[in-house]
Simulated assay, not measured.
Amino acid sequence: MSTPLTADQFLDALRAEGATVVETGGWRTYNRNAKGPWGPVNGVMIHHTVTKGTDSTVRIVHDGYEGLPGPLCHVMIAKDGTIWTIGWGRTNHAGAGDPDVLAAVVAERSLPPDRVATVDGNAHFYGAECENLGDGSDPWPEAQLLAIEQFAAALCRAHGWTAASVIGHKEWQPGKSDPTFSMDGLRGRIAARLGHGTPRQVPPPSRPQVSLSQLIAAARSNPGMAGTPVTYAGVRTVEAALVDEGLLARTYLDGHYGTTTVSAMSAWQERCGYSGRQPGQAADGIPGRDSLTRLGAKHGFDVVD
């Protein structure tokens, strides 16, 4: 058993495994700690979401359902392999489970059948919700399986655990079926990764980079006007993403960050949940780190500076 990692320690561990991470606003202090303990932690639990679409899935696991408030996990792992931070602390993911299973996780030995649900799992496990319909037919892309492996291995490595500390919800609580892939197969992947002296290196994909500061400067260059050509290539990268989102007509994919692009970015920010007037909360079309990072995660670019 271990003291839970801090949010920063967790991020460092994820990135050391080569994971691609998107941080949601306020996740470091978003939790259910007022409702019960979190820790000592004993292992990692994997779930599937029974949802489709990354944006809607992030929203659901963040906000929760009627009768089951969020956060519903520590991270959501999308089909493209992106790991979205949701909350940190106690989260509503594990529910009650079998004390014999918990004892086996603590001892890092083979799991017994889960027969009863009498122990509070939210206090003892890190939890990942993974985007999948959960019908047994929805595929698990390799990029997503790799990210699940990275997430679990990062925590095991940080705590000095073996792959036996990683379980599925279906192995914890009677009647659950998630996740639909083989947990033995996942534990084998994690064991292989942990058996190396250093994390397995995954060649990074070739992705364009967008400078946040230069994009903000471009957005503010001609307020209230049609805009002038901007030599910074990141403008066209972002415009192309907005076109793909259906928020900007293709005719405006021309390197101008004028009022039309401002309006399109504002619409994207509203999709991300921004609508206020305060700095960092406004859907004003001036790019912010969170909304731009979310756009990049969907459309294959990275945000720098």
Results as ranks from 00 to 15, higher is better:
263 S>N: 11
94 A>C: 12
30 Y>P: 03
278 Q>F: 11
118 T>H: 03
297 A>S: 15
228 T>D: 13
228 T>G: 14
214 Q>M: 14
225 M>Y: 13
82 T>N: 02
54 T>R: 12
101 V>E: 02
22 V>D: 01
112 P>H: 07
15 R>P: 03
277 R>I: 10
239 E>I: 06
37 P>V: 09
204 P>C: 08
101 V>I: 09
278 Q>S: 14
75 V>K: 07
189 R>F: 12
252 Y>P: 00
95 G>S: 04
196 H>M: 13
253 L>C: 01
279 P>Q: 06
217 A>I: 10
23 E>K: 01
134 G>S: 01
154 A>V: 05
217 A>Y: 10
289 R>P: 09
19 A>C: 00
104 A>V: 01
160 G>I: 09
154 A>M: 06
144 Q>G: 04
19 A>G: 00
122 N>L: 06
87 G>E: 05
18 G>M: 01
88 W>R: 03
290 D>C: 05
243 V>L: 02
235 V>M: 09
271 R>S: 00
153 A>P: 05
113 P>E: 11
208 P>C: 09
24 T>R: 07
210 V>E: 11
304 V>G: 10
138 D>Q: 02
87 G>V: 06
77 I>P: 01
135 D>N: 15
4 P>V: 08
124 H>T: 04
190 I>N: 11
64 G>F: 02
253 L>Y: 03
184 D>W: 09
169 H>G: 11
256 H>Q: 05
60 I>G: 03
141 P>V: 01
106 V>P: 02
252 Y>Q: 01
114 D>N: 15
84 W>L: 08
64 G>E: 04
189 R>V: 12
2 S>E: 13
83 I>V: 15
27 W>T: 02
57 T>N: 00
287 P>A: 00
27 W>Y: 11
118 T>A: 10
123 A>S: 15
251 T>F: 07
252 Y>G: 00
142 E>R: 07
127 G>Q: 04
302 D>F: 06
121 G>N: 07
101 V>M: 02
66 E>T: 13
259 T>N: 07
46 I>P: 05
139 P>L: 04
185 G>M: 12
74 H>Y: 05
205 P>F: 10
241 A>Q: 07
29 T>E: 11
170 K>T: 08
113 P>R: 08
170 K>E: 05
281 Q>Y: 08
255 G>A: 03
138 D>R: 02
6 T>F: 09
90 R>V: 04
85 T>M: 11
236 R>E: 10
293 T>K: 09
287 P>M: 00
59 R>P: 03
251 T>C: 01
272 C>E: 12
178 D>Q: 15
128 A>L: 06
50 V>Y: 10
207 R>G: 08
122 N>A: 07
226 A>L: 14
41 V>T: 08
170 K>L: 10
253 L>E: 05
67 G>M: 11
189 R>M: 14
28 R>S: 11
53 G>Y: 00
248 L>Y: 03
231 T>M: 09
60 I>A: 08
43 G>Y: 07
125 F>A: 03
291 S>P: 15
108 E>P: 04
